[in-house]
Design a protein around this nucleic acid. Structure first.
Length: 885
RNA sequence: ACGACCGUAGCUCAGUUGGUUAGAGCACUACCUUGACAUGGUAGGGGUCGGUGGUUCGAAUCCACUCGGUCGUACCA
């Protein structure tokens, strides 16, 4: 499932990350032979899209009302074509491999039918109702918005104290408010029932200043005696808590605002038409003039703002459509509790449960034009007919004995209402299509935590209700993509990156322009420009899609936000380059040569057997990591294998064979075959994360490995094969690596030129050591640059020493190495070892450790003890002989 | 206020049910234009794992408290 991005705008880093994750998973499963579906598409993003198109009209000096509803919607469709195309192009650039022919849009005919069907059915079941309720109202957009679209943040304000005189003239009550203008709609003053200060006033009335309305003093235990004066003004039509209290006490609701949040005709003449904030000032002034204004205190309060417009949201009394959420939530909670749906990481279940357990009815009507129009029709008497289409509505009206005109509800549905049906509506529901049977329920949803409520929870509710099965079995919740400083990326902060710019690169000037163009707050442009010039002094180089994807993958740890680090991206671009170079080497040595594809005797070297063994382990690790959504571990395993094993060691170890005139045809065939086969397999292994480079190289390499096929995308994914593991070869190569690194280390520390061939003697070699030496002399000489390797016979010359287990490698110092330098080096090594020996000895001499720790752990410690001690005594001997000679 | 998550090398991050000398990339130092690769090679330096206390033979890992950060949810007019 691909969470539908808004058709507005373009893909941002969050999408790129998410799409990388999804594409990696889907490519992996596809290669594993599964019948996969990755459902692409976009949602219509009602409010956001409408705003974009309105802004474009505004640029021409027009409003949507000037052009009219139908024309306006045409405009949006035009815009959608353009913008939706951008998104699909970007997806392709990112290497995404969804099922393009199954692309869906939430306003498609099929999806629209599903929406209508769901609406009608839910209405029939009594789960959708219409009612006059207090909703969150955006006075700029003139529409209701859901709780989730309101962001409350702390802001500085004031607490005004007003004196409300009692009607009987026996005094006054002091109330406090943060929104003075709402007093015009007050219906009561409330005190706590047990508050002795006001006990005798309950039941009396107050004459509301400026308005003159007589309102009761009521008792309700919602009131906090400790706060302020202990008296609360109650405005049921403009506050959610007051609304509840109003219902409890059957108070009248005085709506005093217009849709623009201006004072309406229910208020005294003087205030009508004033903006809410102007009215506030006027009312405070008037209270002061009346001598009824008490103190004014600074006060921090939470101010609700619309997430799209940033305007202060008003609780507003209007007719709206609602989904009764509780009955739908119940099975949705159960599905997660029972493990039918699993969150990864699991902790997100808590977030889900918390919201679901306190779920509020969902306001689904929006007073905008762009969206699914509500399938409800009204007659002259205001009776409502909910139907799939107009004809059905007329039939219903007729049956109800109404013959006149019907008009459809002007409102549209919340975008998330259609998104909630995504899993099954995209597969053809309500028809029981083949696709629906094949792909429903789906396996996994990949999404960000920010839409667990908006989308995920609602999808689960709707799907369980209509399909009677879960929409998906697992939900992989990933983190947010932040910038290098850990800041959220946003247009207004000017720190957004376009994934395409990372792929293709961008000049500093273009980047600055992009970030400062069309800003909501142009005054920030200078600051953004400065920051951008500082951070990207040379612009951004082109990293390529594969490097960008690999970076995302490597940062995709379990459920934590990721800081996009350009340096890491650069590192992974270099990795791509490394793959190219390794390929060049491989092709150079393979093209036009016999790689054993057509038979012939094949002899594998120890290096061949080693790399094949290591490959098995990596295949195992990568498969497991991908199955656990650990793309970071998978990518790291690929990186290490390709670079640190295949390139650094294996390819180096092939050179002595390939370049040796004495190599047999069988040996050459074996090595060439292994070079190409391991490369080909590694390409398949890496393909889900790096689709482009692996495909391109694979096209060249696969035929040489004797593999036929159109594309790497449909090749089998590599799987661990126990029979290909050769422990003998692994330990032999490890032995060689220790040997070579020991010499390199001395060379480097003793300042011996890398080009200088060395003569070495071997002392204290076991039978196995001697066998390994005999087998691998060519490898050792070449990789460590040795002139000769001789088993020591008799007295050792003054030497620098490296250890391979018990075996000593002696490098004669004559003319090369300074005694002091070698002494210092040995002492340093000895110091390290002594610390370790002391630690291990301490452990093993601790009775409690020996009696409590598991056998295996003790054995391991003993082994370490022996190793360290032997190495230590060897080095000490060496130190002594250094002094003696 | 409650809850969740995070705090590991200069930076970005791994560290699977407690058990090698805590790892990687980038950055840093030295050396190296050796025929795949300087977007490279080789060898190095660098961390008392936020703090305190506890459980344990043994803690980066488990528990408690605490400090710092991020994010949710709820808020008193």
């Amino acid at each position: 499932m691909i969470p539908p991005p808004n058709v507005t705008g373009s893909l941002h880093m969050g999408h790129a990350f998410q799409d990388t994750v999804m594409d990696t998973l889907i490519r992996h499963q596809r290669m594993r032979g599964k019948n996969t579906l990755w459902q692409p598409g976009t949602d219509h993003a009602g409010i956001a899209t409408q705003m974009v198109v309105e802004r474009r009209l505004a640029a021409e000096g027009k409003s949507r009302h000037d052009v009219g509803r139908e024309k306006f919607i045409d405009e949006i469709w035009k815009w959608k074509e353009e913008s939706g195309g951008t998104i699909l192009r970007q997806l392709r650039r990112l290497g995404a491999s969804p099922d393009w022919e199954r692309e869906r849009f939430t306003m498609d005919e099929g999806l629209s039918n599903a929406v209508k069907e769901v609406f009608v059915q839910l209405h029939e079941e009594g789960l959708i109702y219409r009612g006059k309720r207090l909703v969150n109202w955006d006075p700029v957009l003139h529409t209701a918005v859901s709780d989730l679209e309101v962001v409350s943040e702390e802001e500085n304000g004031f607490l005004w104290h007003f004196n409300y005189p009692l009607t009987d003239g026996s005094g006054h009550l002091t109330v406090a408010t943060t929104r003075p203008e709402t007093m015009l709609g007050d219906s009561a003053v409330a005190v706590h029932p047990e508050d002795e200060r006001y006990a005798d006033m309950v039941g009396k009335t107050i004459t509301l200043p400026l308005v003159g309305r007589e309102i009761p003093i009521i008792a309700d235990d919602y009131v906090d005696m400790e706060f302020g004066t202990g008296c609360v003004k109650i405005t049921p039509a403009h506050d959610f808590n007051d609304y509840e209290m109003g219902k409890r006490h059957d108070l009248p609701m005085h709506n005093i605002l217009t849709v623009d949040a201006k004072i309406n005709e229910h208020a005294p003449e003087k205030y009508r038409g004033l903006d809410r904030y102007d009215a506030r000032k006027q009312i405070v002034a008037d209270f002061e003039a009346l001598g009824l204004l008490g103190e004014i205190k600074d006060h921090k309060l939470m101010v609700p703002r619309g997430d799209r417009t940033g305007s202060v949201i008003e609780p507003f009394l209007t007719d709206q459509w609602f989904v009764k959420a509780a009955p739908l939530a119940e099975p949705a909670i159960k599905a997660v509790k029972d493990g039918d749906i699993k969150f990864v990481p699991q902790q997100w279940e808590n977030t889900y449960f918390e919201w679901m357990n306190n779920i509020q009815d969902w306001c689904i009507s929006r007073q905008i034009w762009w969206g699914h129009r509500i399938p409800a029709w009204y007659d002259d008497q205001g009776r409502v007919y909910v139907a799939r289409d107009e004809a059905e509505a007329y039939t219903q009206a007729k049956e109800a004995g109404y013959e006149g005109e019907l008009h459809q509800d002007n409102d549209v549905l919340d975008t998330w209402f259609s998104s909630a049906l995504w899993t099954f509506s995209t597969l053809g529901w309500p028809e029981n299509t083949k696709a629906l049977q094949t792909f429903h329920p789906t396996d996994v949803l990949v999404t960000g935590f920010d839409i667990i409520f908006f989308w995920v929870a609602r999808m689960i509710m709707m799907t369980l209700h209509f399909k009677k099965e879960v929409p998906f079995k697992e939900i992989y919740v990933h983190g947010l993509v932040r910038d290098g400083e850990g800041q959220k990326m946003s247009k207004s902060k000017g720190n957004v990156l376009d994934p395409i710019d990372l792929i293709d690169g961008i000049t500093l000037e273009d980047l600055v322009n992009k970030r400062t163009y069309g800003m909501m707050q142009p005054e920030k442009a200078a600051k953004i420009e400065k920051a951008t010039r500082k951070q990207f002094a040379d612009g951004i180089p082109a990293f390529g899609t594969d490097a960008v994807r690999f970076t995302f993958a490597s940062l995709a740890s379990n459920g934590r936000d990721i800081r996009f680090d350009l340096n890491r991206c650069e590192g992974y671009r270099n990795f791509c380059n490394k793959i190219w170079n390794a390929t060049r080497f491989a092709l150079m040595n393979i093209e036009g040569h016999d790689c054993g594809a057509n038979g012939g005797e094949v002899e594998l070297s120890v290096a061949d057997r080693w790399i094949i063994s290591r490959l098995q382990q990596v295949e195992k690790d990568v498969n497991q990591s991908l199955a656990n959504y650990r793309l970071d571990l998978a990518s790291q395993a690929m990186y290490e294998f390709m670079w640190n094993e295949y390139c650094d060691w294996y390819l180096e170890l092939t050179k002595p064979i390939l370049n040796d005139e004495n190599s047999t045809e069988a040996q050459l065939r074996g090595t060439r075959q292994t070079i190409v086969r391991v490369l080909e397999t590694t390409l398949r292994l890496m393909h889900p994360i790096m689709p482009f480079i692996t495909e391109e190289i694979w096209q060249k390499v696969a035929p040489l490995a004797g593999i036929e096929g159109e594309t790497i995308m449909l090749q089998a994914y590599p799987e661990f094969d126990e029979s290909k593991v050769d422990e003998q070869a692994v330990s032999e190569v490890e032995w060689m690596k220790t040997f070579i690194m020991g010499i390199r280390s001395i060379r480097s520390q003793m300042d011996i030129a890398p080009s200088k061939p060395l003569t070495v003697f071997i002392d204290n070699a076991s039978e196995q050591d001697q066998a390994f030496l005999a087998n691998n002399e060519v490898f050792l000489s070449r990789l460590a640059r040795l002139e000769s390797i001789t088993l020591l016979d008799g007295e050792a010359p003054k030497s620098a020493t490296a250890l391979v287990g018990e075996m000593k490698i002696l490098i004669p110092m004559a003319g090369l190495i300074d005694v002091d330098a070698e002494r210092a080096r040995l002492n340093k090594e000895i110091g390290k070892l002594e610390k370790e020996v002391a630690r291990v000895n301490g452990k093993l001499s601790n009775e409690k450790f020996v009696s409590n720790a598991p056998e295996a752990v003790i054995a391991k410690e003993k082994e370490k003890q022996a190793q360290y001690e032997s190495a230590l005594s060897n080095l000490k001997d060496q130190l002594v002989s250094l002094e003696e000679l």
